[in-house]
């Protein structure tokens, strides 16, 4: 492989290098750098604010590195606000939700991946209708209300329980698996459930990882459905907590000032920055896995749109 690449570069070197190639290459390097800075600098600024001293934050002296390093803001966000409680709620919803969604999606995708299934077309049409026609926000709210699911995490898990898009990714992958293996299991007398969990799922681990991550990010980031269905303050998920914190940041930061002389490193902007950075930790921690599986997942999903 290496020698082939070397060969290629030698051939292209022999040819006259056109100037447009150099110009385009230079512009590409430069613009991609700008793009990276646009993505990174806002994050760096917020991280720096979270760890900078109060006066530097309020006077706007913080750029891309903490000024007067302090941990007071972050530790107060952790200990004296509802941050940890809402983090716990979000973790619960995410873990429980991913398990429920994955089981539902895999179970739904497997029969649909069998072309000979009677009524397959009917079930697919049911899915498509639900994808293209939305019953609307208020009817959904009324259904949740009459089922008595308002103010329970179950409403969130039901609402996001089955993403047709994710289910179709799994179904397409199942269809691409070698049929002979599955058939030989059937001949051996394995039941459909046994075949699915003992033979098909182990072969589909890459797509299971990808879709689990898709679900996990969706559950972790859900905001609107939680704002809609959940009212009790002890059940706030992280995104709702963060949004409320931003709306009430001035009063929250004032309540966190404990120094008798009124001077503190805790400022409204600092508290928001601190909570934001903390809320991003799980996503950043998962990001290497997202990187590894998701790009593959995009190609799996687009193979048979």
């Amino acid at each position: 492989m290496g020698t082939i690449i070397k060969e290629e570069t030698r051939i292209s070197r022999k040819l006259p290098v056109d100037t447009s190639e150099k110009v385009i290459s230079f512009i590409s390097y430069f613009l991609m750098l700008i793009l990276m800075l646009i993505a990174l600098l806002p994050c760096l600024n917020v991280i720096s604010k979270a760890f900078s001293e109060g006066s530097a934050v309020t006077s706007g002296r913080v750029y891309f590195w903490p000024v007067g390093l302090q941990m007071e803001t972050v530790s107060k966000v952790l200990t004296q606000t509802d941050f940890l409680a809402s983090l716990k709620n979000s973790l619960f919803v995410t873990v429980f939700g991913v398990v429920v969604s994955m089981v539902t999606s895999i179970l739904f995708a497997y029969p649909l991946s069998k072309p000979e299934l009677k009524g397959r077309r009917f079930f697919i049409v049911i899915c498509i209708i639900s994808m293209v026609f939305n019953g609307g926000m208020v009817p959904k709210y009324i259904v949740m209300k009459s089922l008595g699911l308002l103010d329970t995490f179950f409403s969130l898990i039901l609402h996001h329980g089955l993403s047709i898009f994710n289910m179709l990714i799994i179904k397409n992958y199942f269809e691409s698996l070698p049929e002979s293996t599955i058939e030989s299991a059937a001949i051996d007398g394995a039941s459909d459930f046994k075949t699915l969990f003992r033979i098909v799922c182990p072969m589909a681990l890459p797509v299971i990882a990808t879709v689990s991550l898709l679900y996990a990010v969706a559950y972790w980031n859900l905001y609107f459905s939680a704002a809609l269905y959940i009212k009790s303050s002890s059940m706030k998920v992280l995104q709702v907590f963060l949004k409320d914190l931003i709306s009430n940041s001035v009063s929250v930061s004032e309540s966190l000032i404990t120094n008798p002389d009124g001077y503190s490193n805790v400022t409204a902007d600092g508290v928001i920055a601190g909570a934001t950075v903390l809320a991003l930790v799980p996503i950043v921690a998962l990001y290497p896995f997202i990187q590894r599986f998701m790009i593959k997942g995009i190609t799996i999903g687009s193979e048979k749109g």
Partner: peptide, 27 residues
């Protein structure tokens, strides 16, 4: 029958989240 049993959890979610609200459109 097992294949059809597998569809049930997904169908329950789809019916509650997408099809019951269609009835609510009457509002």
């Amino acid at each position: 029958i097992p294949l059809y049993l597998m569809l049930i959890p997904g169908l329950i979610v789809i019916i509650i989240i997408n099809y019951l609200p269609y009835f609510g459109i009457l509002i």
